[in-house]
Structure formats: structure tokens, C-alpha cells
Design a protein around this nucleic acid. Structure first.
Length: 290
DNA sequence: AGTCACCTGATT
DNA sequence: AATCAGGTGACT
């Protein structure tokens, strides 16, 4: 006691677009990049993974059997899930979790030590799940089974289905704090800790506020800000991925509160706070967010 | 509804 | 050496 809390010295590098945790915009960027790299039309020759956790509860062998000899027909995103659709009504479902990345490499023998699963393609290239923390997952099987596994995912926030009424209805049914509701994939698909906090800041809503007690007017504003923050992030992430030499501030989507504990709010100049919420850090401005 | 396990690199 | 980061699923 006695000593006033000193703001911790900030050494950790600001999170930028190239190392940001995968939420909807980052997953969408991964999808677009694979489309750009013309994964469609290739045939999968084989699959392998070393850790059982990567394909759990399937075995790597089962995934291999489901994909071998099938042609890649397209890439889709559903919330934070990626689908690699294959010929014959089959599909691969990938979830990047915290640190995963799905990417093409020129040759499977060049895969990094952090590669957790690898698909060898008939043109010599390989599709790998690169994930230092090994939390990402790969499943494969009939398309309907893969979609069933992601069926609990709610409305796509960048689709026409994400209406004022939909957000209002979800909020009215929930006693959770609004930030917890936004991160619930069954309510809105693809929001995570970062963009939920950013949308709430832009909408001026306290992340702790009970969902059902927020006015329809403020929920309308929240819906607008969710769409805006995600659309802007998709755009800047896409630009950054297409200009690999230009990562950094210029192309980064600015985060106004996330990871800014102790810094001044860009709107009012007061200090941004961090509080635990559902075991996660929530960043917000107590003055601008009510 | 809240807590833990799954992971490992960075930080304290 | 201990803690933190965090999406999700399993658990209480």
C-alpha cells in the first residue's frame, strides 16, 4: 500500500495488422489470399499432421482419407471458420483459434517447424496450417457434416441478415454484459476480444452494461459501428496482405482502445482502463462509454 | 453462468 | 519461475 500504481512501462510492440489475432477480418484476409494464390483447381494428394490435437476428435488418417484425390473447388468463410470446399460434396473446415495461419508454401519439404497440418497439392505446392501455439484445428468430411459442426454460428455481421431487429432481439434475450454477448459466436459471427471492444468504444457503450438494458437507439448505433469497424478492418487487412513490404502503421487499422491501458483516450483524453471480463481483458474509456 | 484446459512465446 | 495472451469446448 502507499505506493500509487505506476503505469507499467510499455515494451510490448503494438499489435499491428500482420500479427493481429484472427477475428473475422483476419480470417477473411486469409481466405482472399488463398483465392488470389489460385488454390482452386488443385488436387489434394495427401494430408498429414503430427499432433492428434490438430484434428481432434478425428484422426489425421481420417482427414487424409476424406481429402485424398479431391479437387479444391473454392474457399468460404463462416464466422471464424474457413471451409476449403472439395469435389464430390466434401469439405475441409479449419479454425485458426489464436495464432493460426492457413497458407500456401512452394514445397511441403520447406514447411516450418510450426506447421501443424499439411496438404500436398498436385502442382507441387502445399497448403499448411502454420500455428506456433498449436491450438488451430482441421477437420474434413462430407460438406454437410462440416457445416453442421459450425451450425451454432450466428448471423454474419457483414451480411444483409444482420439487421437492427436481430441485434435488438439477441440483446433483449440476454442478461450477459454486452461485450460478452458480442463475443458469443451464436449471436454474431466473427467478433472476438479486439473488435468487440473497438465497436463498443465507437458506439459509446460501456462493455459491462447488461445487454437487455440497452436502448434500441443505442443498439442501432452499435450495429452500425460493428459493421463499420469490421468492414474497415477487412479493407485495411486486405491491402496489407497484398503489399507485404508495407506492413505497419500506414496500412494498419487503428485500434482506439484495445491494448491501450493507461493511455489517453483519443476522444476525451481520459485514461483508458483494462478490466477482467469473463476471464479476458476488456479495454474501454469509462468516460466515453456509458 | 462461471472456470478450466488446450498451447507456447513473450514478458515480468 | 510464474504469469499472461485468448477462442472455444468441456466441465461444474
Amino acid at each position: 500500500m502507499g505506493a500509487r500504481q505506476v503505469p507499467r512501462h510499455r515494451i510490448r510492440q503494438r499489435i499491428t495488422v500482420d500479427c493481429r489475432l484472427p477475428e473475422l477480418p483476419e480470417v477473411e484476409a486469409v481466405r482472399q489470399r488463398l483465392v488470389d494464390e489460385r488454390i482452386a483447381g488443385t488436387t489434394i494428394l495427401s494430408f498429414a499432421a503430427e499432433r492428434p490435437g490438430t484434428t481432434k476428435p478425428q484422426r489425421p488418417q481420417e482427414v487424409a482419407k476424406a481429402v485424398r484425390g479431391r479437387v479444391v473447388e473454392g474457399m468460404r468463410r463462416r464466422g471464424k471458420h474457413l471451409f476449403v470446399d472439395l469435389s464430390g460434396g466434401y469439405s475441409i473446415r479449419v479454425h485458426l483459434r489464436m495464432t493460426g495461419n492457413l497458407r500456401i508454401i512452394p514445397d511441403v519439404r520447406l514447411r516450418p517447424a510450426t506447421a501443424r497440418g499439411w496438404f500436398v497439392l498436385d502442382d507441387g505446392r502445399a497448403l499448411i496450417l502454420d500455428d506456433p501455439r498449436a491450438l488451430g484445428t482441421i477437420h474434413a468430411g462430407r460438406l454437410d457434416e462440416m457445416e453442421a459442426a459450425a451450425s451454432a454460428v450466428g448471423v454474419e455481421p457483414l451480411s444483409d441478415a444482420f439487421t437492427d431487429d436481430l441485434l435488438l432481439g439477441a440483446a433483449r434475450r440476454s442478461k450477459k454484459p454486452i461485450k460478452t454477448l458480442l463475443m458469443d459466436q451464436r449471436a454474431v459471427a466473427g467478433l472476438g476480444n479486439i473488435y468487440a471492444a473497438e465497436a463498443l468504444f465507437r458506439a459509446g457503450i460501456d462493455p459491462r452494461r447488461e445487454s437487455r438494458r440497452i436502448s434500441a437507439l443505442r443498439l442501432r448505433r452499435l450495429r452500425v459501428e460493428i459493421v463499420r469497424v469490421l468492414a474497415d478492418a477487412v479493407q485495411s487487412t486486405r491491402i496489407a496482405y497484398r503489399a507485404p513490404g508495407r506492413f505497419g502503421e500506414a496500412d494498419s487499422f487503428p485500434l482506439l482502445v484495445y491494448d491501450r491501458e493507461g493511455e489517453k483516450c483519443g476522444n476525451c483524453g481520459r485514461i483508458i482502463r483494462r478490466i477482467p471480463q469473463g476471464g479476458r481483458s476488456t479495454y474501454f474509456c469509462p468516460h466515453c462509454q456509458r
